[in-house]
Computed example of a mutant assay.
Amino acid sequence: MKFTKQILGAATALMLAGVSAQAQTYTMTMGHVLSDQSPYQVTLNEFKRLIEERSNGDVAVEVQCCAQAGNETRAIQSMRTGILTGGFVGGSTLETVVPAYRVLSLPYLFDDKEQAYEILQGDMGRELLDLLDDYGMYGLGFGSIYERSVASKAPARVASVEDMQGLKIRVLPTPGFVEAYNALGTQPTPMAYGELFMAIQNNVVDAIEISPDALVADRFHEVVSSYTMTKAHQSTTILVVSKAWWDGVPADVQEMIQTAATDAIAVGIAAHDELAAEGLETAAAAGVEIIEPDLGPIMEKAKESWNVILTDQPEARTYLERFQAAIGN
């Protein structure tokens, strides 16, 4: 009888262990710095819906918007240490961690965002994502491409390279943006995004470089008078998770997460394209002049910054050569 009880007890323990393993859940906290109306939020909301549905609730996702996890630099550090599961970050921010990513901040690297999507959603994009492994992160995919152009406040108005001379413009605080606008003859002024609205409103800067959806989402169209479609940077975004967290998840769950991320990114890109088009329409309706300049001279001047941006960056230069070969330039 005692032996039988021991067998039954062991069997019950094994059964309970199996139930416990099957019921194991994984919680993901995914953050970003944009608003709760942004394409980032659309993508992560869709990711949350898909993965929670497909995993039958075994993977739960909390989405944090509006820099709740800090700015992108802080968020990246939190991902690398495993404090934050993951989220969306800009390629321009990641270039301070991953040297090869400097190539992504070159002005006019791609002819347009369609070309950027073709390259970054393909094998070379996956190769770039795999570089994150050495820096404590895993790349789930490249997200929306933000075509950044120049929004100016009167009397500043940009229709040519000549109009840009001496223009005080807020840029992202990375070499790719600073040097590009140096080459264009402006006074590039790196500044945190949270300080930007007051800066343009109070004439601290004459202009900002920004995508059309953000122009409207964050109400800059209320304080600028013109928007010049320079499209100097096809600014990349990347959905990233902590490598330490990722390595602790079983292979089948990893595959489920990756598939959900890829599907959600496609939804986010479509939403971003729609928001960008609507942004231009809304800005124009509000009285903002939409200017389409001759891009030839602007592009020529901006590309003079490439060698400066890639100084002492052999990995980034190698990727530039490969991008150009793929594009056919």
Rank of each mutant, 00 (worst) to 15 (best):
M1K: 01
M1Q: 03
K2S: 10
K2W: 04
F3V: 12
T4P: 00
K5H: 08
I7E: 10
A10D: 07
T12H: 00
A13K: 06
A13R: 03
V19C: 07
S20G: 07
Q22A: 13
Y26K: 01
T29G: 01
L34M: 12
D36K: 12
Q37V: 07
S38D: 05
F47N: 01
F47K: 03
R49D: 01
E52L: 05
E53C: 03
D58L: 12
D58P: 00
D58H: 13
V59S: 06
A60N: 14
E62K: 12
Q64M: 13
Q68S: 07
N71C: 02
E72Y: 00
A75Q: 15
M79S: 06
T81E: 10
G86M: 08
V89I: 13
G90L: 08
S92A: 15
S92W: 03
E95M: 14
V97D: 08
R102C: 01
V103R: 05
S105D: 09
Y108C: 02
Y108N: 04
L109S: 00
E114G: 15
L120W: 05
G122C: 07
R126D: 15
R126K: 13
L129V: 02
D130G: 06
Y138N: 02
S144G: 06
S144M: 14
R148L: 11
A154N: 11
P155H: 04
A156F: 09
E162R: 11
Q165E: 14
G166N: 01
R170D: 15
V171P: 11
P173C: 13
P175N: 08
E179N: 12
L184V: 09
P188N: 04
T189E: 08
P190T: 07
M191R: 05
L196Y: 02
L196A: 14
L196Q: 15
F197A: 02
A199L: 02
Q201K: 14
N203F: 11
V204Y: 10
A207W: 03
E209N: 15
A214S: 11
L215S: 05
D218V: 11
D218Q: 10
D218L: 09
F220C: 04
F220H: 06
H221G: 05
E222Y: 08
V224I: 14
V224K: 03
T228I: 05
H233G: 01
S235Y: 12
I238M: 15
L239G: 06
V240T: 09
V240M: 02
V241E: 02
S242C: 03
W246K: 05
W246A: 06
D247G: 06
P250L: 03
A251P: 04
Q254K: 10
Q254I: 04
I257M: 11
D263W: 00
A266G: 11
I269G: 02
I269T: 07
A270E: 09
A271H: 00
E274T: 13
E278Y: 04
E281L: 12
A285T: 07
A285L: 10
A286H: 10
A286Q: 09
G287C: 04
G287V: 10
P293N: 04
D294C: 08
I298Y: 04
M299L: 10
E300M: 10
E300C: 06
E304N: 12
E304G: 13
S305N: 08
W306F: 07
V308Q: 12
I309P: 00
Q313R: 12
Q313Y: 02
P314H: 09
F323Q: 01
F323P: 03
